[in-house]
């Protein structure tokens, strides 16, 4: 297990390093930053001044090493738009996105695991078809449109929930549902196919044959095994959700990382953009690493391969 964990950790660190490279060079190759910073109608002297002042005239490799060196210590420089350290704003906004992601993954799991189990218990029943229909519809629904429809129905027509801002816990309900709907279909499908496979296996037949109660067979024997890949998928989906939160947070004006990223992108605030992309990628890497560990711990076959 230790060797397996070490191997996974090394891989995660390598991926993180490559991602940081991508974050840095994507920005520097996409545009001439000094020109972007100087704004429209800037004179050539101003652009030159900015280029020298910020050290953009040095080789990219040197700039990358310096950026990474400071990033490792949590220093991403000053925001060009907010004029205060990037790290400070990011830490302020992170809890909002973390809360949103937490609620969303709980809703997604709470909806899709029971639905997946029920669908697998009675394959091809009306319930199974309903679950499949929900998944197919969910995968085709544009997330921002679904969010707007939620706003219209629950915020305006029924007037039950607030539709904009992040002041109270109630403000998180609609965004969390919108974000959860994005991940639920995949989790539901995997739960269903996993349960179907497990329920058809020999040890379940044995458990039934020795007279165990059906509920005990279902939960103690079947679900425990079927849930292993679901854990991994849920971690991955949570990572994707944080990336996708830019859309949902912008719709609901929820003051988290995603909304911050959108503001930063609109205002050419690239130190901020780099920091957020890197942070979301790092969270994803850590989540998948933890999922790998959990998988290896739950299923010894994985850590030997």
């Amino acid at each position: 297990m230790l060797a397996y964990a070490a191997k996974r950790a090394l891989l995660a660190a390598l991926v993180a390093l490559t991602v940081s490279l991508a974050c840095f060079f994507l920005v520097h190759l996409s545009t001439d930053i000094a020109v972007a910073m100087a704004g429209e109608g800037a004179r050539a002297e101003d652009i030159d001044f900015i280029r020298k002042q910020y050290g953009f005239d040095r080789p990219l490799g040197v700039q990358y090493a310096e950026w990474l060196g400071r990033a490792v210590r949590g220093d991403f420089g000053d925001s060009l738009y907010f004029r205060i350290p990037v790290a400070k704003i990011v830490w302020q906004r992170l809890p909002v996105t973390a809360t949103l992601g937490g609620y969303a993954i709980l809703i997604a799991l709470g909806l899709s695991i029971p639905l997946g189990v029920l669908a697998a218990m009675r394959p091809n029943s009306w319930l199974d078809r309903l679950a499949l229909a929900i998944a197919v519809v969910g995968q085709a629904m544009p997330s921002f449109w679904f969010a707007l429809l939620l706003m219209l129905l629950f915020g305006v027509t029924l007037g039950w929930l607030p539709i904009s801002g992040s002041d109270t816990q109630a403000h998180f309900v609609l965004p969390a549902i919108a974000l959860a709907y994005y991940a639920a279909p995949a989790i539901m499908r995997l739960t269903r196919s996993g349960m179907l496979e497990v329920l058809g296996s020999d040890y379940i037949r044995t458990a039934r044959a020795k007279g165990l109660r059906p509920m005990a067979v279902l939960f103690k024997h079947a679900l425990r095994n079927a849930v292993i890949p679901v854990v991994a998928l849920a971690a991955v989906q949570l990572g994707f959700m944080l990336g996708g939160s830019v859309v949902i947070e912008t719709v609901f004006a929820l003051n988290g990382l995603g909304y911050l990223a959108w503001e930063a992108i609109l205002h050419n605030d690239f130190p901020m953009v780099q920091a957020i992309v890197l942070l979301i990628a790092l969270i994803y890497i850590v989540l998948t690493f933890l999922a790998d560990l959990a998988n290896g711990w739950l299923d010894p076959r994985i850590r030997i391969a």
Partner: peptide, 11 residues
């Protein structure tokens, strides 16, 4: 997979 597609595309 670690890079958030929509953020990178937007940027």
């Amino acid at each position: 997979l670690a890079l958030p597609v929509i953020l990178v595309a937007l940027a």
